[in-house]
Every structure is written in C-alpha cells, then in structure tokens.
Design a protein around this nucleic acid. Structure first.
Length: 431
DNA sequence: TCTGGGGTCCTAGGACCC
DNA sequence: TCTGGGGTCCTAGGACCC
C-alpha cells in the first residue's frame, strides 16, 4: 500500500467535556459555578460530574449513597439521567461538526472520530480550533480535541487536551509523544481495562510506552488480537477493525434493575413485557426483524439472601417485530426459569438473529404461509401503536401485560430534569 | 437500606461431519 | 485386536467501551 506523509489520515477525536453534567447546565444558568452530578438508572451511581464535582473528590461510578454526605455538605446539584435531553443535544453537536468536515464518525453519545486528509490534515490544529469554537457557539457545549496518527493516539491526546487548553496532537515517533507515553499509565490507554492492567503489571508493563515497545508475540498471547492492535496503534499503525462502524447491529438489549425488589412472578412478567414493547418499537423503527430472544432474571449481587441468575433462549417460529410475539416469548421464557422464593433485582431481554425487514417482506412464502392474514393485522396494529406513541409520548398506548407506569418494579429517577428540548410542555418560557 | 444500561469482539470447548 | 484428525458451527463466558 502506498502511503506518504501528505496523504496519510490524521484522526481527530472530539470529546464533549463532562457531557451529561454540561447538558443539565444548559437550561439552568443558576448552576454555572455549582458542582453538578448526574446519576445512573435508579439513581444508583455517579455517571457524570462537572469540574467542581470532580474537585470535591466525587469519583466516576461511585454509588450515590457513599457520597451522599459530601453532596449535602457542598450543596451539589444532583440529577437523574435524562437521555431524551442528552440524545438531542448530542445530535446538535454532531450536526454542527458536519457543517465543517465531510465525515463525522460518531463513536458514543459524546464523542466522534473525524478522519482528516489532504488540506484538512495539513491545517489540523487550526481546524480543531474552529470546530471547538463553532460547537461552543452553536450548542454551548465545550469540547476537547485530540489529534493523532491513529484513533488510539487521538483518544489519548483528547484526554490530555482536557488539561492543556482544548487541543493536543500526538504523532508516533516524535519526542513529545514518547515522553507523554512514558508518563501514561497503561490502563489509561483505550482498550486496556482492569483485567489487562493486572496481567501487564505482572510482566512489568506499566506505561503506554512499555506496551508500545513490548514483544508482539507476548502481547498477542497475553491480551489476544485486540491487545496487539492497541500496541500497534500506539506505534502509529492503524488497525481499524475494533472501531469500524458495524454494517448493521447484531443484538438489541433492554434490561433494567427494579426500583424495589420483586418476588411475584406476575410483576416479573410485566417488567419483561415492558422490555418486549421497548425492543419491539426499536425493531420497527430500525426496520428489523428478530429470530430469537433470551430472557434473563436475577437477584442482587450485593444484598443478602440466596443468589439466582438464569438466562434462557426462545427461538421464534418466524422472524418478527411484533410486540405481541415478543411478549408471548418472554412469558414462555419466564415460565421456564422462574423460581419462587427469591427477591429479584433485575430482568431483561436480548434479541438475536436480527435481519432486515426488506429481506423478508413480499416473499411468496410469507404471503401464502399459514396465519398470513393474522400477521398482516398484527403489523397494522403495531403501525397504529407506534404512530400514537410518537404523537402522544412514549407509553401513551401500551399492552395490558406491561402493567402500570407506577408499578413497584419501575426504576426510580426522582431528580430528572425537564425534557427541555424534546417535549412541548417542557419548553423553557421566556417572560 | 442504597452499586447502570446497551453494545461489540474474542476465545475456548463441545457437537457434529467426513 | 484395532479405536483419527481436521474443519465448521454454535454457545457461554470474558473483557472492554461509554
């Protein structure tokens, strides 16, 4: 493959600073200098912190009850997750960047990789400054941008950029990059998690530089192919496989911890039906059908009492996106794994064997198959259901099997902010 | 008392086939 | 008496990410 320095891709990673906490602040100017945190589902643990909250020593992922005294002492503003808001602001940030560069590869709700080639690469630092300014101007979200010859280096650079003024560049083979890698604990490298840090430590590999310079065979044996790719990326060799955008999704998950423990089978059935309705709606929106479903229930890992954790797979007789079929399958699964006498803490489902609806629709086999009329009626029902829920809000129309929105197993999120940008009733009024 | 949810990829091992 | 080995497919579990 030909490759010269002039046509080689330079990667930019744009990362929104303290994203969820920043979103909460957008419509609350009174919180400008106050510490702000956002909690996970059921208000369980901390998933985002403003700079002031970080300065107080509140850790990422810390359980809320552990930091509660601290929160009170410093009058920290505490929010439940509001994904409708974060998703909407995220889309605005992505669209803003698309106004400046031809290709934005969204990686997560608050991050995007941008490949830079030709003149864009030649003026990368200037472009990064322009991107930051425009995103801040159009959305009020502050970003950090890392530039690097591979995605892994760009990611590392963006972390460092947070402290150094917004933009930082790491290019393989320069003295500055060498020094930086020597100072970086290996666990801060993208793709190296807790388990790998431990394995590497036993072999004296403590820094990003150690990993970069380790023997390929040993790295491969220790961390498998993904770990080797990470080491190569630190050297400046792109191994895109692990970050390529998948052609289409392979699974779909809906699962949640309960607001309170559940012992009653019918309550579990309701929770599973709610998950079935949730993935059914997503399947139809993405024009997919699923061929198999797993049902999962379990007790708490932390509480006292016996632990129970079981999963079962149910094959569907034909690929479907009907909530009715999915609810029936979750019921069947629940019957096979439910055991009385446990305090259940969580239930969920996972869909497999996803195929595009177009792959099946209109096939002769389907048109003449037994029950074809019932299936057509079912599709029509789902169409009406989705239209109603789009118009009147999620859950406006639902199956009786799902139970009520006030059921005891529903997740609690007592500190949720308004849906500032996505629900008419929640729009900010200016007097 | 109280510890998230939604994804992907890799590997090892069993079943099955010839 | 003698009793293979290699390929493929599937699944469960591990590890990682945000």
């Amino acid at each position: 493959m030909r490759s010269t320095s002039s046509n080689r891709t330079l990667w930019a990673l744009v990362d929104c600073n303290n994203f969820f906490a920043s979103c909460e602040r957008l419509f609350r100017p009174d919180l400008a200098n106050r510490p702000v945190i956002v909690l996970s589902s059921n208000d369980g643990c901390v998933v985002a912190r403003s700079n002031e909250a970080k300065a107080l020593g509140i850790g990422m992922g810390e359980p809320e009850f552990k930091v509660r005294p601290l929160l009170r002492r410093h009058t920290v503003a505490v929010f439940s997750s509001n994904f409708a808001l974060y998703g909407d602001i995220s889309a605005r940030v992505m669209r803003t960047m698309e106004s400046l560069v031809p290709h934005v590869e969204q990686y997560s709700i608050d991050e995007a990789f941008i490949p830079l080639t030709g003149p864009l690469a030649a003026n990368a630092d200037e472009l990064a400054g322009t991107l930051r300014k425009r995103v801040a101007g159009w959305t009020s979200i502050v970003t950090s941008i890392g530039l690097g010859t591979t995605r892994t280096l760009a990611k590392l650079a963006s972390d460092a950029a947070k402290k150094s003024g917004g933009v930082l560049r790491l290019e393989a083979g320069t003295a500055g990059t060498d020094a930086m890698l020597a100072q970086t604990p290996v666990g801060e490298v993208w793709g190296i998690g807790r388990r790998s840090v431990e394995k590497l430590r036993l072999r004296g590999i403590l820094t990003a530089k150690n990993l970069r310079d380790a023997d390929d065979g040993k790295t491969r044996k220790l961390l498998s192919i993904a770990g080797l790719h990470t080491a190569l990326e630190l050297r400046g060799i792109s191994c895109v496989s692990r970050t390529e955008i998948p052609a289409s999704r392979r699974t779909m998950v809906s699962s949640r911890s309960f607001g309170q423990r559940v012992t009653d089978k019918e309550h579990l059935a309701e929770a599973l039906a709610m998950h079935a309705a949730n993935v059914g709606e997503r399947l139809r929106r993405e024009k997919l059908l699923c061929g198999a479903i797993t049902v999962h229930i379990r007790t708490s890992r932390y509480g006292q009492g016996p632990f129970y954790d079981e999963t079962t797979q149910i094959g569907l007789p034909f690929p479907t996106a009907s909530t009715k079929d999915l609810i029936r399958a979750t019921r069947e699964g629940l019957e096979s794994i439910f055991r009385p006498g446990f305090s259940y803490a969580k239930a969920g489902i996972m869909l497999f064997d996803l195929i595009s609806r177009n792959a099946l629709q209109g096939s002769l086999a389907e048109a003449v198959a037994p029950g074809a009329d019932a299936k057509r009626r079912d599709r029509e029902l789902m169409r009406v259901l989705d239209a109603a829920n789009r118009k009147f809000g999620r859950g406006a129309l639902r199956f009786a099997a799902e139970g009520g929105a006030d059921a005891p197993w529903q997740a609690s999120r007592s500190k949720r902010s308004p849906h500032w940008t996505t629900v008419w009733e929640d729009l900010l009024l200016v007097r």
